[in-house]
């Protein structure tokens, strides 16, 4: 099998670029910890409240330390449960101060959902039986739309919320 001289040059540059991509991705993933979420944490989808984070009183934003927050959410067809406010009304809006470290923890008691804070890297599949987790720092103030981006049924497009990053 004969390769033209130029094809050899082409393959060296082409494969070289792919290797470059892999080195950058590998450095980010294994040294900087920017893997896509993959905790493999198991939960009983029929009884998510057995898991502390998903008890009704623990849902929504919790400040755990100075500049450190945890956000617990139960995603079910067709609603994100962010917990309730002081009057017992369902929350649809999350607020996080700018520059905080935020850990999102989400699970589903029914079908597969998505969780995307649109315009950020917080983008996860939410599957029954697993806890989806992602830690991030939200640096840019503004209002972000939270959307379910995995088809979950006829009300899929009505499954949303908002997250405000404030100064």
């Amino acid at each position: 099998m004969h390769l033209h001289k130029y094809e050899k040059i082409w393959l060296v540059f082409g494969i070289g670029s792919l290797i470059l991509f892999m080195v950058i991705l590998g450095y980010g993933a294994f040294w900087k910890g920017t893997h896509p979420q993959s905790h493999g944490q198991i939960i009983d989808p029929n009884n998510v409240e057995a898991y502390d984070a998903f008890k009704p009183e623990n849902l929504g934003v919790t400040k755990v330390d100075e500049g450190r927050y945890v956000v617990n959410i139960v995603a079910s067809a067709f609603n994100y449960d962010f917990g309730v406010d002081d009057e017992g009304n369902a929350l649809k809006h999350l607020r996080i101060p700018k520059g905080s470290n935020v850990l999102f923890q989400i699970t589903s008691p029914d079908v597969v959902h998505g969780f995307n804070v649109a315009g950020t890297n917080v983008n996860m599949m939410v599957e029954p039986g697993y806890v989806s987790k992602m830690e991030t720092v939200l640096d840019t103030p503004g209002e972000y739309t939270i959307v379910c981006n995995e088809y979950c049924g006829v009300g899929h497009h009505l499954m949303f919320g908002t997250l405000e990053v404030y100064e």
């Binding site: 130029y6 040059i9 082409w10 540059f13 082409g14």
Partner: peptide
């Protein structure tokens, strides 16, 4: 194949 090399390099 000069043109080919130039073309594929543009693609890359």
């Amino acid at each position: 194949l000069k043109g080919t090399l130039a073309s594929v390099m543009f693609v890359l």
